[in-house]
């Protein structure tokens, strides 16, 4: 067991290293010269050279990548002597646009993305599992068809379209909600809730649709298994059979998906944050891509990849507890 976890962690580190290398290489090869970008309009060749050597852009690719990588763990110093700039331990460099440290830019925007992700996750897990279960138990009835049609619509509607529609109906036409604003919970709890409600609903709708389809298939599958007949034959009552025996094996695949999706959202809900003007990591990503702000793009890509890889690892661990079959295989 211990050996298995050690191997998983090593594999995860390997994947992260490869992703960082790939991302770095692509921007190294494709981006226009960042020194020219930083230097701006009033630029002299000497100034460009100076910036290049300060940022280490005159070094060969491998040395630049190494500096970037070691900066994340040990911090980094740009330039020498009096002009040196310190960048503390998880150093992802400085934005080309605003000169802010990338690490700070991400950490200040994280709370918004976490709020978006957690709220949406609660909603979609409730709706997705509930809907799927209802659909499976009432298979073939109007309930089943209703839930599945809604789910089908949910996976076919692009979330920016749902976002616009919702905003048009609830804010412009019915005036039930104000325009979403960036407020802290402590400042105005009601406005805070109203501002996050639409992003939560939009995200949850899409995910719940997907999850309810999977839960339905799995529960129906499990209900047909032999051990379910045994459980019923033993005289257990229906709700208990459902809870104890049907739900657990049906939910294991949902755990995998949830890990990936939740981690993905923590890394920024790109489209939803942009449409609703929420200043989270997703919006930061969209903005930095629009401005070709290479260090920021590098930082958010690594963050997103890291979150997904860590989530996958946690899911694997959770699996060994949820599903005995996996435990046997890995031993």
């Amino acid at each position: 067991m211990l050996f298995y976890f050690a191997r998983r962690i090593l594999a995860a580190i390997g994947v992260l290293l490869l992703i960082s290398l790939f991302t770095y290489a692509i921007f190294f090869l494709l981006s226009p010269d960042p020194a020219v970008q930083i230097c701006g309009k009033t630029c002299t060749p000497e100034r460009i050279d100076q910036i290049r050597s300060q940022l280490g852009l005159d070094l060969p690719f491998w040395q630049q990548y190494w500096q970037f990588l070691s900066g994340i763990f040990t911090g980094r110093t740009y330039g020498e002597g009096a002009a040196a700039i310190q960048c503390a331990a998880p150093c992802l460099g400085f934005s080309f646009q605003t000169n802010e440290p990338v690490t700070d830019m991400i950490t200040t925007r994280m709370p918004v993305s976490i709020t978006v992700a957690v709220g949406a996750a609660v909603l979609w897990m409730l709706a997705g599992i509930g809907g799927g279960l209802l659909s499976a138990v009432k298979q073939g009835t109007g309930w089943d068809r209703g839930v599945m049609m809604t789910a089908l619509a949910g996976i076919s509607l692009p979330n920016y379209f749902v976002a616009l529609l919702l905003q048009y109906v609830l804010v412009v036409q019915l005036r039930w909600l104000p325009f979403p604003q960036s407020v802290q919970f402590a400042e105005d709890p009601l406005l805070w809730f109203q501002s996050y409600l639409m992003p939560w609903l939009v995200l949850a709708f899409g995910y719940a649709a997907m999850y309810s389809r999977i839960v339905r298939t799995n529960v129906i599958d499990t209900l047909g298994q032999n051990f379910m007949r045994t459980a019923r034959a033993k005289g257990l009552d229906a709700p208990l059979v459902l809870r104890r025996h049907a739900l657990r094996p049906s939910l294991t695949p949902v755990v995998t998906l949830f890990g990936m999706d939740f981690a993905g959202l923590l890394g920024g809900a790109l489209i939803t944050e942009t449409v609703f003007g929420l200043n989270g990591v997703g919006k930061l990503t969209a903005d930095s891509i629009a401005k070709n702000d290479q260090p920021v793009i590098m930082g958010v890509t690594l963050l997103a990849a890291g979150l997904v890889v860590i989530a996958n690892m946690l899911v694997d661990v959770a699996y060994t507890y949820l599903d005995p079959r996996v435990r046997v295989k890995s031993a």
Binding site: I19, N292, T301, A304, V308
Partner: peptide
């Protein structure tokens, strides 16, 4: 396959397409 599926696909597609 494992490697490509561990990628934050959307972010990476956007980054790649904007750099190209």
């Amino acid at each position: 396959m494992d490697f490509l599926m561990a990628f934050p696909t959307l972010i990476f597609m956007i980054a790649l397409l904007s750099a190209l």
